[in-house]
Design a protein around this nucleic acid. Sequence first.
DNA 1: GCCGTTTTCGGCCCGACTGTTTTCAGTCG
Length: 575
Amino acid sequence: MKNRTVARMLLEIAQYLEIEGANAFKVNAFRRASQIVEEMGEPVEDRLAELESIPGIGKGTAAVIREIVETGESVVLKELKEKIPDSLLPLLKIPGLGPKSIGRLYRELDISSVKELEQAIKQQKIRSLPGFGAKTEQKIREGIRQLNHKPERFPIALMLPVAEEIEDQLRKCRHIRRFSRAGSLRRFRETAKDLDFIVATDHPEQVADDLVHLPQVRNVINKGATKVSVEMDYQWPVAVDFRLVRDDEFASALHHFTGSKEHNVQMRQRAKRRGYKISEYGVENVETGELTTFETEYEFFRFFDLPLIPPEIREGKGEIERAETPGGLPQFIELSDIRGDLHMHSTWSDGGNTIRDMAEACRHRGYEYMAITDHSRSLRIAGGLSEEQLLAQKAEIDELNKEWDDFKILAGVEMDILSDGRLDFDDGVLKEMDVVIGSVHTAFKQNEDVLTKRVIGAIENNHVDFIAHPTGRLIGRRGPYALNVDAMLRAAKETDTAIELNANPNRLDLHAEHLRKAREEYGVRITVNTDAHSIPELDNMKVGIGTARRGWLTADDVINTMTLDELMRYLKRHD
DNA sequence: GCCGTTTTCGGCCCGACTGTTTTCAGTCG
């Protein structure tokens, strides 16, 4: 029984209870239990004896978990399913329609599926219900339409350029004192539902007018003195919220709308214990009613005796507790710690720019080194290099390196790990290269055993320095292949081989949870690289660093923060 | 259902917005 299955069943219990109209806190208890099981590092069946000692799990939920693990079923869930048809659950996804309304629609109009709901709307049955009206009916209709036509969340690769474009516009707006992105994009979550911006201004009405006239606005959802919601026209309609606040409210609003929800709940619980109330406007002393505001988030956290908790780790996953321990939070990696990019392509294989252009671009970014790592011979579709071409390329790199004394190009290769587990070049070639990357580009469908052996085989080769985009997933398009990540990390630790965090926003691979595991459980070295196929893609390092911070990484965990000398010693350690 | 350096009972994060209402419930973030 997988943790995911147990979590899924607990969540279903929560959803049925919610529709039934059960106590909201009881619902929340099951939802929380579901999340705890989902995020548990080890199999839940190994922890059956100590379930009640986990915060958030008590007598009730522990009994249900044990029952599910031991019998595969839950009596509670079974009984709920008999009372409430499972075809009601999809209705929970309709925006604007919540569990209370769904419960009433079912009990009073006998509606038990999206189809029946659509029919009832057509027959104008909804508006006849007390408390519902014509507008609500239309809102539900619109909600169903959205559900069918729009992905729920957009990948960060799509949202980042949109956010950057909006920020360019905001910089040009008059009457704006300062602004910041907020929400899940500020936390560098890999997908986002919408975009949030906090805007400080003394003239909210004028700014609101300017915002609804931004070029890409296609639809104004909502326009008031504190909030402007619009839909912007990109590949899909993108929902964008602007919160207009006074300058002294800016820090509190920014914290509030950056979230995550779980982080905010924990901060508010902490405030409450101390006799304060946190809102988006400031911190209120419950006894005196006095409101404290802050110039910056740093001051906000300091008010609660905490260091600044970076947005990227505000997920309610132990960051507040860790900040309080004597050691405090780690010193998280920053973009300025990166001294070079160790994975990129040139016109020699499928890249768009020459080696010289890529080098100048890297030097311009303040790097001390970079590695050219074009594809190897088997990857024909990407113009993979033969042995001879690889050595010729190395000669070109040696020539180029004479031009700078403050910068060095390392000669590398992104070598295919073939489907039968062999490597694309033999050791004689590999030992000539400064950087050797092992990558899986074929036979993604292999089973876990075969695929994991392929990757570990590459790790065990003395010349392989790191494994690129280890799980192969493409966010929103293709899931990871069946790699046993724990087994890979163990092998990487034993051989002191690094693992890549591929900074391409379509990949972000390894993802944040695996990175945190790599650091905290295995102590594996990571390398953050862009895998750039053209100069602009070198800027993806920003997203990579955001993701590294989500994974709680420090500069010491990442090999391309080393000086050139340190790095060369590290790369040579096996040769 | 969960939880307790104020509590084993009585709380459980907070506010805005919307649509339906004469004072509020539901939904959302």
